[in-house]
Design a protein around this nucleic acid. Structure first.
Ligand code: MN
Ligand code: MN
Ligand code: MN
Ligand code: MN
Lengths: 218, 218
DNA sequence: AAATTGTTTTAGGTATACCAAAAATAATAA
DNA sequence: TTATTATTTTTGGTATACCTAAAACAATTT
C-alpha cells in the first residue's frame, strides 16, 4: 500500500471516529475517500494486516494504538500547515484545506516542529480544530453543534466541521466566523432551520449548515 | 501516468540535457530515476504520447516546448523550496534537497510565488543553481567545473552539481562553500586531483569531487 | 418471524507501474 | 568491415489500486 494511501485512510478513520469512540463504517469511508465500498473493504483488510486498524468484518473499523499514533501525526501536519498558510503566508481559511491535503504527506518532523514553533505552538487551526502536539496529545473539547443548541441561549462560534471553500465563504459573508457571539432566536419545527442573531443582524441557518458549525455555550 | 512520475521524468530529463541542448539517453535516466532501463523505455513512450518529449527510439529523448515548460516549473518549485527552507526555516544546505524532492510536487502557484516574494524573488538556490522565474525564464551562466580550471588561476565557487548531504558536509568542512575564493596550485597528472588554496589553507580535491564543483574565473 | 432495505463482501476484471531475461540495435574497437 | 561491447527494446510476468455486478449479511420494518 502506498504511504499516502495509508495516511489518507488512517486520517479519515480518525476524523470519523469521534476521538476513537466509535466504529467507523465502510460507507462513510467510501464517501470521504472518494473510493467505492468494495475498494474500502480491500484497503481495510490490508490496514488490518499492517496492524494499523482493527477491522471487524461487516461491523466496522477502529484504529489500533499504532494506527492512532500515525493518524494523529497526519492530523498534526495538516493543521499546522493550515495555520502556517493562513498566519504566515496570507492565505484565507477557505483556501488552505486543499493545499494542506497535499502538504500533510511531507514527512519531516523537524520541518513541522519548526513551523509550529514559528507559530508559537498553536492549539487550534483556522477552522477551530485542535492541533495535536509533537507527542500526539490533543485537546478534547466539549463543544456542541449549532444544531444542538437551545432557543434564547447565547453561544460563541468555536469551529466548523466542513472545510469546503463554498461553505467557509458563505459563513464569512454573514460574519459567522470563529469567535463570533450568537443568540438563538427560533428553531423552526418544520425543517429545523435556526434563526439567530449575530453581529446585530438576524440570519437563518439551514439544519444542514447548523450541523457543520461548532459552538460553546456562554 | 501519475502526475508525480511525469514530473520526476521531465525534471530529470531537463537536468540531464544541459539546457535542452543534448539528447538524454535511457541509461542516465534509469540511474537518476532509480528505475530499470526497460521501465524508462516504457515511460518515455508514454511521455511521447503525452507530447511532453520527443523520444527518438534508441537514440535519446528531448523535451518539447510543453515538456520544458512543465520541467521548468518543477525546477522552480524545487529551488524555491530549498531556498525557503534554508533562508526562512533554518535548514542547512545539506538537508534541503531531500525535503524539496517531495515539496516540489505540491502544485499551487500562489504558494510558490508567495514564498518567492518573501525571499525577494531570489535568482540562485543554496547550491548555486539558477531559479526560473514564474514565467519559466532562467539565467544561463557560463561557469565552469573545477575540473576544467587551469593552474595558477583564481576562481570563485559558484555552485555544486551534487546535492548529497555527505558531499555538502565534506565541502563545508573545508570551507569550500559558495562565494569562496580559490587559487589552483597544482593538477596531478596521475589522477587529475587538484591542489588548491582556499581560506589560506591548502587542500587536495579528487577529480570526482572537482567534477561537482562549479566555479567562475576571477 | 418474515420481508424489505441498506450495507458490506466476494468474484472477476481493467489499468498502471514496475521488473528480469532475451533479443535487437547502436557504438566502438580490431 | 567485422567483431565485440554497450545500450536499448521487446516479451512476458508480478503487484497494486482501483472498478462493477452479484451475493451475502445486518438492520429495520411490517
Ligand atoms: Mn491527503
Ligand atoms: Mn482545518
Ligand atoms: Mn530534486
Ligand atoms: Mn538545489
Amino acid at each position: 500500500m502506498r504511504q499516502e494511501t495509508i495516511e489518507n485512510y488512517l486520517k479519515t478513520i480518525y476524523n470519523l471516529s469521534a476521538n476513537n469512540t466509535m466504529l467507523v463504517g465502510n460507507q462513510k469511508l467510501s464517501d470521504k475517500l472518494g473510493l467505492r465500498p468494495a475498494t474500502v473493504t480491500e484497503g481495510l483488510r490490508k490496514l488490518h494486516d499492517l496492524k494499523h486498524v482493527i477491522y471487524e468484518k461487516s461491523y466496522g473499523t477502529r484504529l489500533t494504538a499504532s494506527g492512532a499514533k500515525l493518524a494523529l501525526s497526519i492530523v498534526r501536519r495538516h493543521r499546522i500547515w493550515e495555520t502556517y498558510l493562513t498566519k504566515e503566508l496570507g492565505f484565507g481559511w477557505d483556501e488552505v484545506h486543499e493545499i494542506a491535503e497535499e502538504l500533510e504527506h511531507i514527512k519531516n518532523d523537524k520541518l513541522i516542529n519548526k513551523l509550529a514553533s514559528i507559530l508559537g505552538n498553536p492549539i487550534y487551526d483556522p477552522h477551530g480544530d485542535p492541533i495535536p502536539d509533537a507527542k500526539g496529545k490533543i485537546l478534547k473539547s466539549n463543544f456542541i453543534k449549532l444544531s444542538e443548541t437551545k432557543v434564547k441561549n447565547n453561544y460563541k462560534v468555536m469551529g466548523v466541521t466542513d472545510h469546503s471553500s463554498s461553505f467557509l465563504k458563505y459563513l464569512e459573508k454573514h460574519r459567522l466566523i470563529i469567535g463570533a457571539f450568537i443568540n438563538i432566536k427560533t428553531i423552526e419545527d418544520f425543517d429545523n432551520s435556526i434563526i439567530l442573531s449575530c453581529q446585530k443582524k438576524e440570519l437563518s441557518i439551514s439544519a444542514k449548515a447548523a450541523e457543520c458549525i461548532i459552538v460553546e455555550a456562554v
